[in-house]
């Protein structure tokens, strides 16, 4: 299914293979990911019950990020996509993080 003879003509030029390359992911992989997500949901509820002070927020966000990562890399196929897709996502995430971070230069120092 791979048809990228065009690459020799100078990088990723704008003509596309008529048939496209794709990966079919086994149902079993998806099922494992789902189990992982369900377990992490349990963990986050459990951790929220333990008084850790401000670390509760951190723990909740870390677990949520792990879950989002599972969805992104498996359900959304990011693991199997070309480099392009993996380069695009950080652009959006870094932008959002910068915006929120910079705003706190105001609100944290009032």
């Amino acid at each position: 299914m791979k048809e990228y003879e065009g690459k020799a003509n100078g990088g990723s030029t704008g003509f596309q293979p008529v048939k496209n390359e794709y990966h079919v992911i086994p149902y079993r992989t998806y099922a494992m990911v789902w189990i992982g997500l369900a377990v992490l949901t349990g963990v986050t509820i459990w951790v929220a019950g333990i008084p850790l002070g401000r670390f509760n927020v951190l723990a909740a966000l870390l677990i949520a990020t792990a879950k989002a990562g599972l969805v992104l890399f498996f359900f959304m196929h990011l693991l199997y996509e070309t480099t392009l897709f993996r380069l695009l996502l950080p652009v959006a995430l870094i932008t959002l993080a910068s915006i929120i971070g910079l705003t706190f230069f105001d609100f944290s120092f009032r």
Partner: peptide
């Protein structure tokens, strides 16, 4: 892809509203 993003948003909403 759209549906999974909707899922990801909820993954963050759940702890931020229900578990604090």
């Amino acid at each position: 892809l759209y549906w999974h993003l909707v899922d990801i948003i909820w993954i963050f909403l759940f702890p931020l509203f229900y578990l604090i």
